[in-house]
Simulated assay, not measured.
Amino acid sequence: MRRVPARGSLAVVTDHAAPRRRQDPRRRQPLEWARGRSYSWAAPLLLLAGITAVDLTTTERFRIISWIVLVPGIAAAICGVWVTAVYAVLAALDYAVVDSLWPHEYQAGLPNFILVTFAGLLAVLACVVRAGGERRMLHMRDIAETTRRTVLRPLPPGWAGLDHAEVYLAADTVARVGGDFYDIQPGPHGTRVLVGDVQGKGLGAVEAAAALLGTFREAGYHEKDLATVAGRLETRMLRHRGLTVALGRDDGDRFATAVLLGFRPGEPDAVEMVNFGHEPPLAVRPTGVRALPPGDGLPLGMGELVTEPGPPPTRTIALAADETLLVTTDGVTEARNADGEFYPLTEEASRAATADPALLVAHVRDGVLRHTRGRLSDDTTIFAIRRTTAP
């Protein structure tokens, strides 16, 4: 997979970059960085020097050495525990030295020294509490990252003969993964691709997505016919719903829309598609865009409502060598701007004037973020694939 560089927004942009080394908040708080180093300690130092200089250069009517009590407090907010402790000691020593330089009648005296010392101790304790909260936050982030990489596993570049790029935008600025899912599964019967969106949010949607992806990874490899893979997905969704209901959870009506694609070996100019109530993919080429036929099947988990049981029909669609399939979830098609206008996906894909998956995904992603001003109302997945010349 070619990673698409992320731009800042209110949405959380997820890619498959290698996880960063977890930093111990007791040692440093990365507030300001330059050339890979943190300079958060500079702010309390400047404040300490400024208060000392002003107190020494003004008259006795403007004694501000007691303001040095702010120094350990600022350090507690942006520095580590040991740095805060150092500033607490420096503040007390600096107060004692500067105050002793004044005549006795102008000295701030012992009460203010006790105030500065006590404030330093409180600042160290506050920094310890803050550092503990940050450690817990980092631990929870690690858990969320592990969950994300389990559900949305990293895909290597050119995986299974497909040039692909994908971006996941979480509407929740805290959550790292939601109900959107995608995967590519090569096998002896060709390469299968699954992109979908579980109805609802929260852990229930993540569990359903994980269940569907697990079934897809097995069935997509072993089953010869794409229709059989589709049937296995429908059965898995029903089984998952039955389990959650038995556990007493309100997931009995959960469903998922999805697009299941099959690239058969020896057929470079065609793709098989089963559409479970999802928006049809777009076939994008540098000269234009065409929409694939809309799916007439019901979402996964609702197959029991049809009179004739079975998955939706499998369509075989011609696909030119310079066409890229663009599959998005409803976070793109239902994205609205301040005036309530939907994001024009087809027009924006035409303006991209490229069939390169990475460039196409980046163009759509940036367009959605501009259209919504970064305020996404739903999780969003943008997935683009095309065949490569290599098998």
Results as ranks from 00 to 15, higher is better:
residue 4 V to G: 03
residue 5 P to A: 14
residue 7 R to P: 01
residue 10 L to D: 14
residue 11 A to N: 07
residue 12 V to R: 15
residue 16 H to M: 03
residue 18 A to C: 02
residue 21 R to Y: 10
residue 22 R to G: 07
residue 27 R to P: 00
residue 29 Q to C: 05
residue 33 W to G: 06
residue 34 A to K: 08
residue 36 G to P: 03
residue 38 S to W: 09
residue 40 S to C: 05
residue 41 W to S: 05
residue 43 A to Y: 15
residue 49 A to E: 11
residue 49 A to M: 14
residue 52 T to Y: 10
residue 56 L to T: 03
residue 59 T to F: 06
residue 60 E to I: 02
residue 67 W to G: 13
residue 68 I to N: 15
residue 68 I to S: 13
residue 72 P to T: 09
residue 75 A to D: 12
residue 79 C to S: 03
residue 83 V to N: 07
residue 84 T to S: 05
residue 84 T to Q: 09
residue 85 A to R: 06
residue 98 V to R: 08
residue 100 S to P: 00
residue 102 W to I: 00
residue 103 P to S: 12
residue 104 H to S: 11
residue 106 Y to F: 15
residue 114 I to D: 09
residue 114 I to C: 11
residue 118 F to W: 13
residue 120 G to D: 10
residue 121 L to W: 14
residue 123 A to K: 04
residue 126 A to H: 13
residue 126 A to V: 01
residue 128 V to K: 11
residue 130 R to T: 05
residue 133 G to D: 12
residue 141 R to G: 07
residue 144 A to S: 14
residue 147 T to Q: 09
residue 149 R to T: 12
residue 151 V to C: 08
residue 156 P to L: 11
residue 160 A to H: 05
residue 163 D to K: 08
residue 166 E to H: 13
residue 167 V to Q: 11
residue 167 V to G: 02
residue 170 A to I: 01
residue 171 A to H: 14
residue 171 A to D: 06
residue 182 Y to V: 02
residue 187 G to N: 10
residue 188 P to F: 04
residue 190 G to L: 00
residue 194 L to E: 07
residue 195 V to T: 06
residue 201 K to D: 07
residue 201 K to C: 00
residue 201 K to P: 00
residue 202 G to L: 05
residue 209 A to V: 05
residue 209 A to H: 12
residue 209 A to N: 04
residue 213 L to T: 11
residue 213 L to G: 07
residue 215 T to S: 13
residue 216 F to A: 03
residue 218 E to S: 15
residue 219 A to M: 03
residue 220 G to T: 02
residue 222 H to S: 09
residue 232 R to I: 03
residue 235 T to P: 00
residue 241 R to E: 04
residue 242 G to L: 11
residue 243 L to I: 08
residue 254 R to W: 05
residue 257 T to L: 03
residue 257 T to M: 10
residue 258 A to T: 04
residue 259 V to L: 10
residue 259 V to P: 03
residue 261 L to V: 06
residue 263 F to S: 01
residue 266 G to V: 06
residue 267 E to N: 06
residue 269 D to I: 00
residue 270 A to Q: 15
residue 280 P to G: 08
residue 281 P to E: 06
residue 287 T to N: 12
residue 287 T to G: 13
residue 288 G to I: 06
residue 291 A to N: 02
residue 297 G to L: 04
residue 297 G to P: 02
residue 304 E to K: 08
residue 309 P to D: 09
residue 310 G to C: 04
residue 314 T to W: 07
residue 317 I to A: 05
residue 318 A to S: 14
residue 326 L to K: 05
residue 326 L to Y: 02
residue 330 D to R: 12
residue 330 D to G: 04
residue 331 G to V: 01
residue 333 T to R: 08
residue 335 A to T: 04
residue 336 R to S: 04
residue 342 F to S: 03
residue 344 P to T: 05
residue 349 A to C: 07
residue 354 T to R: 06
residue 354 T to S: 15
residue 354 T to V: 01
residue 356 D to E: 15
residue 357 P to E: 10
residue 360 L to K: 00
residue 364 V to D: 11
residue 366 D to R: 03
residue 373 R to W: 08
residue 374 G to R: 09
residue 381 T to F: 02
residue 385 I to M: 13
residue 386 R to I: 00
